[in-house]
Design a protein around this nucleic acid. Sequence first.
RNA 1: AUGGCAGUCUGUUC
Length: 255
Amino acid sequence: DLLLSSLQLSSTSTIIMDYAHKVFGQIVQPDLFMCNTIIRAAAYSSTPSLAFSLYFNQFINISMMRPDSFTFLFLLKACARLSSASTGAQLHGMIVKLGFQSDAFVRNALINLHATCGDLATAHSLFDDTATNDVVARSALIAGYAKRGQLGIARGLFDDETHCHTRDVVSWNIMIAGYVKQGQMDNARQLFDRAPQRDVVSWNTMIAGYAKCGCHARALEMWEEMRNAGGDASPDEATVLSLLSSCADSGALDV
RNA sequence: AUGGCAGUCUGUUC
């Protein structure tokens, strides 16, 4: 139980993961929840591929236990972190075979997986099939296009007025980050200013963008604005990390 | 003991 709960923490060290793996091997009949927990831990670890060997051992070799949608969500996460299109295609096949593709969470994670791996055609057609009114699916797809620099298509999806639930604070952040990644800070800034809500990620995205392109003064200005804006967006570790280089550049680094 | 219930869930910055 102790081990299970330490695996539920957000980050699990390699050592704990290793130990958990050994202990897990001693458990005679782990139930579905236990299997999911260890697969989840593996998926988020530095060796996501371990999730797949655990899956095959527990669900295929050892028992006839049936995986559930959680199991596949974690495998999808592992696969996305591996960024492996071929593993993704196989996993997709398994999911369809077992009938889990109708689960909205699984479907969105699939869209995310293909978008992450660069298989935008597959991601887009999954989206068109059943997910056009789902903001999570849409933003996963937008992120995929933005990642590959296809900002025109990304923007089209973002601006789509023909569907419902097309935007939230996350999708605004994704679109802003897309411009930032291409070094288009003016476009990023324009969107940022138009955004109905900003959270800490919105601010961090802009600050990191200015820092990365060497606009350290602008980065520091944003930080000042962020503090004045107050509200729900208080700075976090990511904010500080981006600011470090800008402070160093301006000579304002007093430690 | 058996049965049930609960717990794990998708997209953005670092």
